[in-house]
Nucleic acid binder design. Sequence first.
RNA 1: CGGGGCGUAGCUCAGCUUGGUAGAGCGCUCGGUUUGGGACCGAGAGGCCGCAGGUUCGAAUCCUGUCGCCCCGACCA
Length: 600
Amino acid sequence: MEAVSTRLSQLFVRTLREDPVDAEVASHRLLVRAGYIRRQAPGVFAWLPLGLRVRRKIEAIIRDELESFGAQEVLFPGLLPREPYEVTNRWTEYGDGLFRLKDRKGADYLLAPTHEEVFTLLVKDLYSSYKDLPLSLYQIQDKYRDEARPRAGLLRGREFSMKDSYSFDYTDAGLEVSYQQHRDAYERIFQRLGLDYVIVKADAGAMGGSRSEEFLHPTPVGEDTFVRSAGGYAANVEAFTTDAPAPRSLDGLSPAEVLDTPDTPTIATLVDVANQKHARADGPEWTAADTLKCIVLALTALDGTRELVVVALPGDRDIDMKRAEVAFAPAEVEAANEADFAKHPELVKGYIGPWTADRAMLGGSAEGEPARSITGIRLLLDPRVSEGTAWVTGANEHGKHVFGLVAGRDFVGDGEVQIGSVVAGDPAPDGSGPVELARGMEIGHVFQLGRKYAEALGLKVLDENGKLVTVTMGSYGIGVTRILAVIAESNNDGKGLIWPKNVSPFDVHVVVAGKDAAVMEIAESLVGNLEAGGLDVLFDDRPKVSPGVKFGDAELLGVPLIVIVGRDAPEGRVELWNRATGERTSVSIDELGSALAAQA
RNA sequence: CGGGGCGUAGCUCAGCUUGGUAGAGCGCUCGGUUUGGGACCGAGAGGCCGCAGGUUCGAAUCCUGUCGCCCCGACCA
């Protein structure tokens, strides 16, 4: 690209002295204040020249890395017909999140939220042989999602730019290679962008794929919680797993006994009363971790049927509803309501447990019968409730709990479920030590889709043996405008933006300070030289603006290198100002080029 | 969808309690003085006080409704 110089006196920008009142997070506030973007509607932004320049810098890096392994760029429209999305059922599944519209004939259209369907169909149209594969296609295109609540400026918008790629292979091994190529390219892209990231295992269930990882940028404004261990483990909380302890012998465990525990509907009250009235003979106090909490959830399947399940987990844990949603998908999960309880009067709120003296209340029974429990409600166990563990839990009577109830002896679950809250200190499943919790913003996602879309849309090719095989696909996304916001979010100070050099709208910002015509002339020629040397230059040539305003704007706009042409210019000296460090050094004009190169 | 807040000039806000015909700072235009950290003087342009009803001689102000926006939560391939 040809180097350019732009005069601030001509640039279409107006900086705001005060923060816009509707902007909360730093990136939103500063991008608006510095004149990079303007809001058009909730979650919808117009791009001004400065913002566009940054956006294109980011896009160029993405393109470079994708082309480096042979991915090819295409461009789909944002406006698409309903049909392809009907075939995969996403016209319906997307629900309110989809922008739908009708043409003059009443035909249904949508503003695409993502493009799996049409990419699949495009390849189906043109290719039919294994010899054409592997193939990776991508586009950088605006996506539309009618978010219930757009927020934080560019971080969650309703229109946003996304780079989406799709890989096409006819073998699983091929998909693995394509996936790895994208994953490697993403690492290089984020490194070039100067973006801190962690790769976390993501839940792959809902989309029917086999492998999925998210690139998260750690930041307090992030929307995802993830866990990581010092030993290198990282995962989304939804994908975090806890291993069940090895089964313990049932021999020698004391029998369960029902004890009075008046007024103990909560775990906290139960622990208190247990310690007061039923202290353990052999020492340690009862804690919440000794109790078994039984939570009644209502699942609504896609066909609308509602089923209650009880999840039993240690009393020091809560249910993480996000994890629950993933675990029970596609069914919807919510806490059981009054009507649900009314149908099961045998469930005594606050005193629910799996066991009664006669017959299992929930789940199966240790002896394998009776086949159905009293309630018939499925009992799902947290992995910590493993065979041979003993618990204090509800006795299904007001004011009574059963102590020493042993999993695998006195009650049996109908399955395991991993929806307990994850807390700092939990062991990583790979043995790499305790985890900590952190917030992150998803900036990239690599996903092995497998054959779901190819199957639904009939994308098959002939293999070496002349046999039709269904193509296997991957999809890979990077949020371009979100990345821009994340970079802004992580690169600013009280005075304004501080762009990393690879994405800065200009390489250098030249400020002419003072009204002297001679100084202005020197600045003009200096700008010309820098441009000739291949640098993009923003030139603050505004004649009637005081130096303070120019300096303030320079800091707000965030070009990392600033050159002040001022009082020492007639002596052949200018100041080189590093935006990030604030350091200013006097350099001779002759050496400016090398001084800039040294800073860059 | 639940909770909270806010709609007055391009931006940030005052005025509303107690009704009397629209204000400030910044920005913008013109003239002049300034020019190394957000200068100053003078003269201007700019508002359907979100919208619709109502009360009243009179509504930015009181009442009702409505729309929109922001934040928190729910939701989010």
